[in-house]
Design a protein around this nucleic acid. Structure first.
Lengths: 223, 223
DNA sequence: GCAAATATAATAGTAATGCTATCATTTTTA
DNA sequence: TAAAAATGATAGCATTACTATTATATTTGC
């Protein structure tokens, strides 16, 4: 992915005070990405975060209602970033097959370069998305949060890539199921690859996850 | 599924004291399934569980180290039950295609009948598996727990169904990835169907999830 | 350059969670 | 029927997930 001066704006529903607007806010994002990655979401607390930043719990609460809202913010940021990549990479492509292939690559490949935004480490963020993002929606609050628009960007990504599949085969019945399977499936595979390798078939350097989901998709939607 | 007097034995690694061996233990299982379903895993506590059973926190701690271990127990029980169903339904089948089709049905269809074990409600348990089971492995403790054998049964299921796929096409490169995608994917689809329907394509009574994963699988492994 | 507004830090406090420990009382079993 | 085992009652403690108050910086608008 190209390194461009990129600015991602997040819907105010995700925060009390925009973390992108102040030094402390940006520090909260930078350090929380690091801490969630290191401690895991359960052991991560605002108290620990405050201590590592050299600030206080109450200051952090001015930016986010609680740690779940912060995770949702990161989730939204990640999908806004992916959406941007998708648009950028497919805008000028004519052939629907190439477009879909590019999209699957963007959704399933490893993130290895930290480039786009100065205070956000995309490589670490991707690891958090793999290990923690299901926790954003696997809660009893999912319906309320859905109403607040927490999943709007994610849905837009699924819908966009689903429409690429429909360009190839307008009769295909399950485009959303296909795309959300690719996304959630590939995250699971990356996690399994690191921790429960017998549940997957990855081999170093062979891009098997990208290959599997690409082949699966094209065979599945073929008429 | 047939209603048989079924006994599922769970590896002692999952508990301090076998809940299947006493009245209180069985009550813990029955009520915890209910409470986790109603409150969600985060809001579920041993204190609340004890109160609803009419027992005490310390008594419950004699059976399970903590609520995460209890969830892991339920996860293991569920997969042992599914493994039994898989063996039972495919044992006498000759045709590899039929076997694989049956297996996918068992892995992806809704659980609507509560039958096998008196004190375990399989319908509710299935809802818990859909909404909470990822939390069993999405933790920092996953590697330690893997060493303790927490995922042995789940792996065996993936390996068994993977081998059905290989019977159909011995050259297929990604059998484990395929099966774990079917399992994790179909759970996500059932959750999305209830809470984020635009991420899936379900229609009442049409068994779209089973159909999607069946078609996907056969097309994907076709030579 | 200074007052007013705003943001942050420091500190305290509270209810709930996630345990552990002790001891009394049942219940089981040998 | 005595000993062993399981359960219940009670207490306690460190941590979590907040909320509130006040003091101190920092920004900004005039």
């Amino acid at each position: 992915m190209k390194s461009l001066p990129l600015h991602i704006e997040i819907d105010p529903a995700f925060y009390c005070k925009n973390p992108d607007s102040t030094e402390l806010g940006r520090k909260i994002i930078t350090y929380s990405i690091d801490m969630i990655d290191k401690l895991g979401f359960e052991a991560f607390t605002f108290r620990k975060l405050a201590k590592s930043i050299g600030s206080t719990e109450s200051s952090i609460y001015r930016y986010f209602e609680n740690k779940h809202a912060l995770l949702a913010y990161l989730f939204c940021w990640y999908w806004s970033w992916k959406e941007y990549q998708l648009v950028f990479a497919t805008n000028n492509l004519e052939d629907p097959g190439t477009k879909l292939k590019e999209a699957i690559r963007i959704l399933t490949e490893e993130v290895t370069e930290d480039s786009s935004v100065s205070y956000i480490n995309e490589v670490t963020l991707h690891r958090i998305i793999i290990a923690e993002s299901a926790k954003v929606y696997l809660t009893k609050a999912v319906d309320t949060e859905n109403e607040k628009g927490y999943f709007r960007v994610y849905k837009r990504v699924v819908s966009r890539v689903g429409s690429f599949a429909l360009e190839l085969n307008p009769d295909y019945e399950f485009p959303h199921m296909l795309v959300s399977t690719i996304i959630e499936g590939s995250h699971a595979q990356r996690f399994f690859s690191d921790h429960l390798p017998s549940l997957t078939d990855t081999e170093t350097g062979k891009q098997n996850i990208v290959r599997f989901y690409t082949e699966m998709t094209f065979k599945t939607i073929a008429r």
